[in-house]
Design a protein around this nucleic acid. Structure first.
Lengths: 346, 346
DNA sequence: AATTGGCACTCAGATCATGGGAGTGCCAGT
DNA sequence: ACTGGCACTCCCATGATCTGAGTGCCAATT
């Protein structure tokens, strides 16, 4: 059974290993941490920790390294999320303050976070599936091309091109527009998807000219809504991976691929289980299903006008969890505040 | 003076080195290429090539490696751009065919190109500075927020939020809209920028409610046009860098950074000088000013409704230039054809 | 004048031996 | 329960040696 001091030893090992990148020996521990016991005692504790598979020795006679399980215990029981320094808080403000639409704010958020942590930063767009569609707008571009614009109450704007093979006068256009609008405006995206699909299955091939146009528009709306559902990510700091390259035994290929794919990371972020404070970590082999067995993700939930989503960082399993937790949490809070203020100002 | 055969030797060295990643010796050359002379003769040629700094020996007694200058001569005089295989052409069609707006097409283009070359693929958006603004649309979102939408004749749509601190009825809105439209619609972006700036310097602080709103909108339009000017890039294949990691003496950090920055790459791509066929290459140290001294870019011009831009690939200096030239050229042609067909169909 | 075979020379990299040292596990003594 | 001591392991740095691919040069040949 692992004693209480045993856990402190684990903490020390994690901390030192994250610091030095080198296996930690019993002697180094008594030197750097005031345990008040001898190296031999620490060795006994370490033997127990090894039995529990919380640490491992790369070679028969070398120091110990935390296992993924060890990191997990560290994160769950031993990591104290220390608040950021004033300088760091100032950095967040410097990055985030100022006006801008949702896109702007999120881009600045990931920049701030990558700056703060030295890791790849990721932010999910607020889940638009729960958002409400507040506007539909149609713009004729000539040549039968029609621009379809959707706006949600959370501030997302999306546009897409429909081909209607026809020109309409203002009255007709207003007609088509209100036809489409009646279908989805004021409704949650989820519901909009349903109603749009229904409309499409009922589409009459012998419909009037206006109906046909409306159908074409609705088809495009369906595509847009689909995109709303599979929310997207904003990322920054890819280049930092090159710095911590040596932490990835294989290569950073899987990381770069996941970053390019987005879908994988999206799923990973979504499936993470948060604690009471909205913080979550996914460590090392826990990410194996996503091809990221040598990486960890630390994330925090934030709130954008009622729609929840996550901000996080991605890095080597050997990352500084406490610092990253603190940064992620601070940024998430700041972001929540900003987006809510924004809302209040409306 | 480098003889004609000397140049053939250079070609052989470049080819073999790209193939094997290893310094090429005189013996290997006579074995792999039918020069009909002995290794000693090749050695004499190589000595001359070394005098001209077209090749270099990493160590006193090892094979030779092309210098950047050597690659340059190879690219300018020795590389035959061989047409793609039918299978490769088919791959391009498979990726690119099908409907979609400009964004879609460009995304598919970079995917195709990275697939074809195994390098990072880059495409510039067609230069919108020369494009004409064809529509302005305003949408009120409530809470004083107003969506400003610009459309160009080349198919780019952009939107941005303005804060007008006011609500307007339809007539007023139409008034503001036509006010702004008269300023820029039907004019090239370049000219639009000027007129917008003029309008802003004349802005009267004691203006009417509508004028104030128009000014706010114009200010946002100015930002959007500015974005039009500094065109953007679409990229894919970042992960391939991890594969050819060993080709970068230092690390791939500068590459990843440039990819994230975009601006740098944009500039690099724009400054490349094309030959008669619209092909261009920028090799190794020529990219030093951009922090990419160990990388090369191969690009080709394409044509989007009269607006020229470039597609290209980014990779290690030791890349397969002929193949990349061929792929880039083929994709550029296909792209031009597609975007023109698109235009014709209007 | 160009080409060739021959030959001495160079040097990076592989292979092997050696020793030091950090670290462990265990045990007997406090 | 903790500690000092000690034998043991084995990584890694250092150095010596060897090998072979490759060069440069020269005298001989065509």
């Amino acid at each position: 059974m692992v004693t209480d001091r045993g856990l402190q030893v684990l903490r020390a090992i994690v901390q030192d290993f994250v610091d030095t990148r080198e296996p930690v020996g019993s002697k180094a521990i008594v030197e750097r941490h005031a345990f008040g016991v001898s190296a031999a005692t620490i060795r006994n504790d370490m033997a127990l920790l090894e039995d529990e598979e919380l640490i491992a020795a790369p070679h028969t006679s070398s120091g110990r390294v935390p296992t993924d399980k060890g990191y997990r215990v560290f994160v769950d029981h031993l990591a104290d999320v220390r608040p950021l320094s004033p300088a760091q808080r100032a950095a967040i403000s410097a990055f985030l303050d100022g006006p801008g639409d949702l896109d702007d704010v999120l881009v600045r958020t990931v920049r701030a976070l990558t700056q703060l942590t030295g890791q790849v930063a990721i932010v999910q767009y607020p889940s638009f599936a729960r958002a409400t569609i507040s506007h539909v707008e149609l713009v004729q571009l000539g040549g039968g091309r029609m621009l379809v614009i959707l706006v949600t109450d959370t501030g997302r704007v999306s546009q897409r091109l429909a081909f209607v093979h026809d020109e309409f006068d203002d009255d007709d256009l207003a007609q088509v527009r209100s036809d489409v609008a009646s279908l989805i405006v004021g409704r949650p995206v989820r519901e909009g998807v349903q109603r749009v699909d229904e409309r499409l299955t009922q589409a009459d091939s012998a419909a009037s000219r206006l109906d046909a146009a409306a159908t074409a528009v609705v088809r495009v709306v369906a595509e847009e809504l689909e995109e709303f559902r599979q929310d997207r990510l904003v990322m920054a700091g890819t280049a930092t991976l090159a710095r911590s390259e040596s932490d990835f035994r294989g290569s950073i290929y899987p990381l770069l691929e996941a970053i390019e794919e987005q879908v994988t990371l999206m799923k990973l972020m979504s499936e993470m289980v948060a604690d009471d404070h909205g913080l979550a970590a996914s460590i090392g082999r826990e990410n194996e299903p996503f091809g990221l067995g040598e990486a960890s993700v630390v994330a925090s939930e934030y709130d954008a006008t009622g729609a929840r989503a996550r901000v996080g960082v991605l890095g080597p399993t050997r990352m500084d969890y406490p610092t990253n937790f603190a940064a992620v949490r601070a940024v998430a809070r700041y972001l929540t505040r900003m987006l809510d203020d924004d809302e209040n100002a409306r």
